[in-house]
């Protein structure tokens, strides 16, 4: 976000504005761009030829460039911050890439929705696949179950191996999946896009969640046996 300062503001007062801007929620970087720096930047963009005749006159304003924490980068937050900054005396104009931000926000919400649908489908598929494989196992061992029940085995006693099996299937398949992702992430260089990898703790948590899903699948697979 660019915050342009009025010409009447003295350099010392402009420097003092920095602390007011830093105090705004979400701002994590404040950089002053002096008139000279602005001229150098413009020269680097358009070349020095176009600036001939402006050696003694610099019409470019002083400005601050603000950086934000990623969580604050939404249109509504930016609008709120803009209105707060413009209310500060001696601020001429505030500019930021509103359109770009809107597009990014829209894309992010679409990706999130697709991710949620895909995630839901994967969870459902996992549930059905694990549940069916466990159901097949219980059918193959049906004669044994009858005998076990005649000997006094309780429902939980019979169910426990299948619930554990579901837990292990969930955990191990999730761990293998993450293993493959981490392996390929380290082997392939991504230049066009930045992939944010979860932390080790998050991966462990994910594997445990998949284990819990496996237990649920195990329960689905043996629910007839438990009746």
């Amino acid at each position: 976000m660019h915050v342009y300062l009025s010409e009447s503001l003295t350099d010392s007062s402009a420097a003092l504005l920095s602390s007011s801007l830093t105090e705004i929620d979400g701002v994590n970087a404040v950089q002053l761009v002096s008139k000279e720096m602005a001229r150098r930047e413009l020269a680097s963009l358009v070349g020095t030829d176009l600036l001939i005749g402006y050696d003694n006159v610099n019409p470019l304003p002083r400005s601050y460039i603000l950086g934000f924490e990623p969580a604050y980068l939404t249109v509504s937050n930016m609008e709120e911050i803009e209105s707060r900054i413009i209310a500060i005396p001696n601020i001429d104009k505030v500019e930021y890439s509103r359109q770009w931000l809107q597009k990014a926000e829209f894309t992010r919400s679409i990706v999130l929705k697709i991710g949620l649908v895909l995630g839901g489908l994967i969870i459902l598929t996992t549930l059905i696949t694990f549940g069916n494989s466990i159901r097949l196992m219980t059918r193959a061992r049906a004669v044994g179950f009858t005998q076990m029940r005649l000997l006094g085995a309780g429902r939980m006693f019979l169910a426990m191996p299948f619930l554990l099996e579901g837990f292990l299937m969930g955990c191990v398949s999730a761990a293998l999946g993450w293993g493959a992702i981490v392996y390929f992430y380290n082997r392939i260089a991504f230049r066009q896009l930045e992939i944010v990898m979860p932390t080790f703790d998050e991966i462990v948590l994910f594997c445990l969640a998949m284990g819990a899903l496996g237990i649920l699948s195990g329960f689905v697979g043996i629910r007839k046996l438990l009746k």
Binding site: G144, L150, L151
Partner: peptide
């Protein structure tokens, strides 16, 4: 009922062995 069944030993036709063990 499970507790009662644990007190009973069964031999013969109905009391097959568990095939997977």
């Amino acid at each position: 009922l499970n507790k009662i069944r644990r007190k009973i030993g069964g031999i013969g036709g109905m009391f097959e062995l568990i095939p997977s063990l």
